[in-house]
Design a protein around this nucleic acid. Structure first.
Length: 432
RNA sequence: UCCUCGAUAGCUCAAUUGGCAGAGCGAGCGGCUGUUAACCGCUAGGUUCCUGGUUCGAGUCCAGGUCGAGGAGCCA
């Protein structure tokens, strides 16, 4: 079907040639005996010019009445034209209709979020969503390449798990034959096992949180990339995270400039993202927040407002380390110089996008870990395999997880994470 | 779970103090030989979210419900 056809992103290579383009009708305009069809093929949009004296009356009539989003194969000559936004247009001599569309629900004018979310499967065809999906593809490839090139091994963690990875958050329960299973909240515990086998690994996969969160930063199903390194400590994880963020920002800037332009992203903010990033301890962060008049006491977790104020004080992403152990997960290693602190690190994105990375150094002492599990009221039996990692050659190790959607929302400069994934799962949305 | 706001044509919205249901886009028809969310003219298109109440009269006021949006907590 694609014989002798060309995609719109490569159309300049066919300048002056007669070629075919397969795509969908994105828009139409007309004037007298001339018709303009905007043809979209996923790689771009090109204007196809239909002149009454160049085509048969049947084709001219077709160009007049073809419904939006009908699929077609357009044949014509590729012509340079300064009036075109991509520099080229097609002088049509034939249009083959593959499938005539029914009346298309998404019009050229504005729509509400609820309507667009109900039509997410069609909304993806718009230029803005097209740009976001391309940036997402570059971002995930860039993140994986960063780890691949550093010698990390890619490992998949299970989606179905026997128990919680982090006690406090809610789990999706599913039937597993004659018992229950839970959708994973994090690949991390399995990543630790893999790191003891392979040295440096990363897990890339979906994560499920049954929290009733209803904000622009939350999905119930989202994707994380989670590196884990044996024989490494907190500062090593921070350095790795800094390198990752710089890499994905630089790759998206270099490879997605047309897409970032569609989204009207202020690139000057991204160009500032170079090492080193500010590194604050939690205690220093609390002091800064108090100086800025926030009502917060040592020991409280940083909420959305606090994160915004803190990241607003810097023009780069900010690391916050050494949180109170009480507000962090059971597997976090305590600071040997202060038992109240955990060797944890979060990375706050600029411009109010909040936490995009969370991680730290893991507890490597069997006794300490068993004690923590008891403290958190967790059942030890399903975690015996995890404790085995401390029984058989335990080593200092550290890692983190980066939320793909939050990182992408920040880099793309879009307001809500629901647009950063093709089919978002939200508290009240499971369709389409 | 809590707080705030909203629901009127396929879509986005308007409708003054409670007094004839409106516009733009989209659809149909017509016009225009270079349009850029093209433009111009005409036509069709309504269970005003649901249930009940107040009233001579309810899109508008009251009560309950449903759905949606924004935010909080929690988190990436």
């Amino acid at each position: 079907m694609r014989n002798n056809s060309e995609t719109i992103d490569k159309i300049s290579e066919r300048s002056g040639e007669r070629t075919r383009v397969c795509g969908w009708i994105a828009n139409k305009r007309s004037s007298g005996k001339i018709r303009f069809l905007q043809l979209r093929d996923g790689t771009g949009v090109i204007q196809c010019v239909v002149m009454a004296d160049r085509v048969t009356p049947e084709v001219f009539e077709l160009a007049d009445h073809i419904p939006y989003e009908s699929s077609v194969i357009v044949t014509g000559q590729v012509q340079k034209d300064p009036r075109s936004s991509i520099g080229f247009e097609i002088a049509v001599d034939n249009i083959e209709v593959i499938s005539e569309a029914l009346p298309y629900p998404i019009s050229k004018k504005d729509h509400g979020v609820a309507f667009l979310m109900d039509h997410r499967h069609l909304w993806l065809r718009s230029s803005r969503q097209n740009a976001l999906m391309k940036i997402r593809s570059v971002l995930t490839r860039s993140a994986r390449s960063y780890f691949d090139e550093l010698g990390f091994i890619s490992v998949e963690a299970p989606i179905l798990t026997p128990t919680a990875c982090e006690g406090t958050t809610s789990l999706f329960e599913v039937a597993y034959f004659d018992r229950s299973a839970y959708l994973t909240q994090s690949g991390q515990l399995y990543g630790e096992a893999a790191a003891m086998a392979l040295g440096k690994i990363y897990v890339y996969g979906p994560t499920f949180r049954a929290e009733k969160s209803k904000t622009r930063r939350h999905l119930t199903e989202f994707w994380m990339i989670e590196p884990e390194m044996a024989f490494c400590e907190l500062p090593d994880a921070i350095d790795l995270a800094e390198g990752l963020i710089c890499r994905i920002v630089s790759d998206t800037l270099n490879q997605c400039s047309p897409q970032l332009k569609v989204l009207e992203r202020d690139l000057s903010r991204l160009e500032l993202v170079k090492p080193p990033f500010p590194r604050l301890t939690y205690t220093e962060a609390i002091d800064i927040l108090k100086q800025k008049g926030m009502d917060i006491e040592w020991g409280a977790d940083l909420g959305g407002d606090e994160e915004s104020v803190l990241s607003g004080a810097f023009d780069k992403p900010v690391f916050v380390t050494h949180y109170p152990a009480d507000i962090k997960a059971f597997y976090m290693k305590r600071d040997p110089t202060n038992d109240r602190l955990a060797l944890a690190v979060d990375l706050l994105a600029p411009e109010g996008y909040g936490e995009i990375i969370g991680g730290g150094q893991r507890e490597d002492s069997l006794e300490a870990l068993e004690h923590r599990i008891d403290e958190h009221g967790l059942d030890k039996e399903p975690l015996e395999w995890y404790l085995d990692l401390r029984r058989y050659g335990s080593v200092p190790h550290a890692g983190f997880g980066m939320g793909i959607e939050r990182a992408l929302a920040w880099i793309s400069g879009i307001h809500h994470v629901r647009e950063t994934i093709a089919f978002p799962r939200l508290l009240d949305r499971l369709y389409p």
